[in-house]
Write a protein that binds this DNA or RNA. Structure first.
Lengths: 344, 344
DNA sequence: AACGTGGCGTGAAACGATTCGCGTTATGTA
DNA sequence: TACATAACGCGAATCGTTTCACGCCACGTT
């Protein structure tokens, strides 16, 4: 049914090799260019990706494995990644593993069987075992957002400097005089949560201050979790003077808890978020936040992978790109009661 | 490098045809089953999808084109669709066209070139031209959430009865005595927005009531849009006694506007939402809403497509599945001041 | 005892591109 | 004019499955 290169050869009178060469960007006489172009249009020809793949062993398809498609940050990354790859002719197979390690492993296998040229992964499993099938088959891998130490040297990665981001955010609060700072974190054991926690402590340490341990709340990066966590902070005997929420879903939940309790920001409480999506702008115009460069993360990851695919024979150079964040000033943070707590 | 069926044939001493048959679920002597299984394991063999595709012209890959990956409803559908399809061995290429008709068309072409076996589409373009390349090549199509009349008979579809849903929701308010009802709609011209608008009018008409025209606000289905729209309703000279928000993003935005203005639900205002995600439960435990069966929508769409793929030679029977919604009772709606407005 | 039947197995011909190693032609130089 | 060189074109093999058309064998039936 569909037209093949043989049909084009027949119509144009050219050889297969010539047509193939032209279709792949090679040099051909102008007359033949035109001939082929016409024939392609007339027959509505497109290259058969199966046949091409069979010869070249390349699918021009990339697999993306993420923990949850419902999380704004992940979705955003997927969008940028997909855009960048599609512009280079790559399609993207998206796999949401529901934060399930078993499912994640299954999906990597699935993608490998589908013969993807590379894999992008925001890992759920902390140890990286799930990627073994891909490594075994030499499928290039780029991790995003979360590192896996045991895999260093075998994969590339793109992360933001989470500890630094958290340090900067905390510093803003501490230097504003806050001492009783609440922090709502992601799940214990998740790379980003640990890093952000570390930065929080470091900022205190650098200033010779102790951390207000009661203010530390581990949650789950969901809107609901943020809501519950904020409620918990607000119902404790001692209230924080500032709260740092470490992702955008939780920020949404937390802010709903705030307005429920009629707590004014920043009059009653200073409020700082991690990663404020664009659509927060109208809602929380004053919100101070740490911004992750979503676009850059996605593009960098895609480009890193594309480079690995280019480097045909030379041994691949794995690298980890660390992107920096910036604090986006708002008015949701104001000076706190500096004197309230003692320095060490 | 990778093992092929030839290797298996060599090791087991069997013919290619036998191995192929077994691998595709055919009957083979138990002894040979074991032989093949062992060899497969030993060689770490997996079928080469390129070669298979070349012979069968099937990629076992489905393309999904949606307007925005950042919208909870769409993402949710993608998740269910992907799950259902993966269980049947199909991979999913996800394309977010950013509500851009030109991009949407481009993506359909891209998917067709990638030789997807079928396309699932929540259409952005209202006329369906963008699907022509797929139709020309006989790629089965299932539309989701939004119908395209000119394509009737050429594609299948899965929608919910939006008019009915909206009618039921509106009826709840009207029968509760509300007359000045605000409704926050999606963009004019978008299928679901029009349908929900129609249902809103019908509910009034059925009761011989006139619509409070000032309460109709077209927005854009975003959180930000819902926020702005609600603010607009609240700043008009005459306030609504109830507001119906027609998607979940806008509900979130609208409810933030409400708490900003310290408007209590349902004391000051009755509030009804369309499609409340699970994670709203903790935040708005009392919210009354119209529920769309996300899971069923995704599964039905996937299954409809799978059926079309099965029906190998017989002419495909196109059908449109219309799923129903249900009103999930909460306490965010309470009787309104029945007498305030006159019947016709 | 002859014969039909059904279950399994096999060889070889596709599917439609890419690519290697050569041939042919045009161009520039001595 | 002859010849080196570059530019371009061509034929044929090849990638790894699927599938068609048979062949073989063991049964059970009459």
């Amino acid at each position: 049914m569909a037209a093949t290169m043989n049909d084009i050869a027949r119509i144009t009178g050219l050889g297969l090799a010539t047509i193939s060469k032209y279709l792949n960007g090679g040099n051909v006489l102008p007359r033949n260019k035109a001939l082929i172009d016409d024939a392609v249009k007339e027959l509505n020809f497109t290259v058969n990706t199966f046949a091409r793949g069979l010869k070249t062993s390349r699918s021009h398809t990339i697999g993306v494995v993420i923990p949850e498609l419902n999380f704004a940050f992940f979705t955003s990354i997927v969008t940028y990644v997909t855009d960048t790859l599609r512009k280079r002719g790559y399609a993207v197979l998206v796999c949401d593993c529901r934060t399930d390690e078993k499912l994640e492993k299954e999906m990597v296998g699935f993608l490998v069987d589908k013969r993807v040229d590379g894999i992008l992964n925001i890992p759920t499993s902390p140890n990286g075992e799930h990627l073994q099938p891909a490594l075994d088959r030499g499928v290039p891998i780029v991790l995003i957002d979360r590192m896996i130490q045991p895999l260093a040297g075998q994969v590339s990665g793109v992360i933001v400097d989470n500890a630094d981001a958290s340090r900067k955010a905390t510093a803003l609060l501490l230097d504003g005089g806050h001492r009783d700072i609440g922090i709502i974190l992601g799940p214990k054991g998740v790379y980003t949560a640990e890093q952000r926690y570390a930065g929080f402590r470091e900022a205190h340490g650098q200033r010779g201050l102790t951390v207000w341990e009661e203010g530390i709340v581990y949650s789950d990066y969901t809107m609901e979790g943020g809501y519950v966590a904020m409620k918990k902070l607000l119902s404790a005997p001692q209230l924080p003077t500032a709260v740092f929420v470490t992702n955008s879903e939780m920020t949404l939940g937390a802010s709903i808890a705030l307005s429920e309790k009629q707590i004014r920001v920043p009059e009653d409480l200073s409020f700082l978020s991690f990663d404020k999506p664009d659509l927060f702008n109208a809602l929380f115009p004053t919100l101070t936040s740490v911004q992750q460069p979503h676009n850059a993360i996605g593009e960098t990851a895609a480009n890193l992978l594309l480079n690995m695919l280019q480097a045909d024979k030379e041994p691949i150079q794995h690298q980890v790109a660390m992107l920096s964040t910036q604090v986006l000033p708002g008015t949701s943070v104001r000076p706190g009661p500096r004197s309230k707590r003692m320095t060490i």
